[in-house]
Design a protein around this nucleic acid. Structure first.
Lengths: 228, 228
DNA sequence: ACACTACGATAGTAATACTATTATATTTGC
DNA sequence: GCAAATATAATAGTATTACTATCGTAGTGT
């Protein structure tokens, strides 16, 4: 990634945290090792106590940053979608042709995440795996409506919106642009999950096949021939 | 639903339960009120202790049927997919035309669930809501590969397989039949979730719009005109 | 030197997710 | 109709989780 990204700070809804983790060393350690430990143990077995041991800090100190691990997950997912949104905007901004723009957007959303050293304390490859495995758990809760009202999912919704608009630009007659956008976002995560755990339920085995699958899906839905 | 279904018993992988809940009154009560209570509290807040209170039974008695609530969820999801598979096979069996067959299949998978009194102790409408809200949690775990090997997801995979085959029959050249089938199954649940909680992320507001959306999506992907 | 904040250490609570044991009720087999 | 087998209920107990609250201290800013 470029320098520009390295210098910007992603804005996360302030209600998600009690103290901004980007404001201190300990905060950054919580994020950095939180990602690693959630990935290692899975969200269910992950606890603040274990994270405390891992970073040589006290459990109670972590609670000063996040109310609970659910909020930490909301923080991480918001960060991830914000990061992806930035890449989307950055990569498609200069493209004039509507079809090419959408094609690029699908590529950004569906491609495999590679190491990105922009944010030194965040491992985007691991974070992507967390999103694949745990993102659903952040909204499949009884509190989803309340938390949605608080704006906890605003970055994701903005991203879906951008995609939806790009889709509508290509074919303004298409009646389901937002559903298609959300299918793309969710479905892409799901295809990667299937590739890792239910191989028989997907044809996407190669590195770029998720992109090929969704590019085909979207452009066929819009009744546009997809010739590069 | 018809009489036939009322008399068959869905076969669930025996490793999922310690004692077959279909074999006793208490077992059926666990399933019946388990569904209601998971729906009411959400899976996270649901406990066997609370279920025990609800059905006037002891916590320890429930543990004799299921090792833990995760296994109960696996049981319920298996039952649901088995039930849906049965409807799929039953409804499409006699249709000769490949396109019509697939179209019917999509309808079965994506339609809203209505009251079905075939299984007196199982409320399929509520169970469907549980699937929408909790199904992902049954496989987004660290144990998924082990449990997959044990065959806990076999019914779902069989259903996806049937769909995939119907897709391939319509267009044998289509390169992603299984991915499309899994997108359909997962995506349908997701669109219903969005309809209930993230209205701005879907165009599917009416009762049959999820069906319309996915019918359009699938047939366009297969490059087949969908004129009824 | 003083205030202020951050962090660590310790303690404590209610609930969860079980396991184990024993007692009682119900079913069934003869 | 009674004994044996089985199912369920009751109770107790454990380790862990998910916190909250308090206190002491180290570092920082003025």
């Amino acid at each position: 990634m470029d320098r520009l990204l390295r210098s910007i700070k992603l804005e996360i809804n302030e209600k998600i945290y009690k103290k901004d983790p980007q404001s201190s060393e300990l905060g950054k350690k919580i994020i950095e090792h939180g990602i690693l430990l959630i990935h290692q143990l899975g969200f269910e077995d992950f606890t603040f106590k274990k994270l405390g041991v891992q970073i040589g800090s006290n459990e109670s100190s972590i609670y000063r940053y996040f109310e609970n691990k659910h909020k930490l997950l909301l923080y991480l997912t918001s960060w991830y979608w914000g990061w992806l949104e930035y890449q989307l905007v950055f990569s498609t901004n200069s493209i004039q042709d509507k079809n090419q723009k959408l094609k690029k957007a699908i590529e950004i959303i569906t491609r495999e995440i590679e190491e990105d050293s922009s944010f030194s304390y965040i491992n985007e490859v691991i974070l992507n795996k967390i999103i694949i495995n745990e993102y659903s758990k952040s909204y499949l809760t009884k509190e989803v409506d309340k938390e949605n009202k608080e704006g906890y999912f605003i970055i994701y919704k903005r991203l879906a919106d951008r995609l939806s608009e790009m889709i509508s630009l290509v074919n303004p007659e298409y009646p389901f642009p937002t559903s298609l956008a959300s299918t793309l976002l969710e479905g892409s995560l799901h295809q990667y999950f299937l590739r890792d755990h239910f191989t028989s339920l997907t044809e996407c085995k190669e590195s770029n096949s998720v992109t090929l699958y969704f590019t085909d899906l979207v452009f066929n839905s819009l009744n546009i021939k997809n010739n590069g």
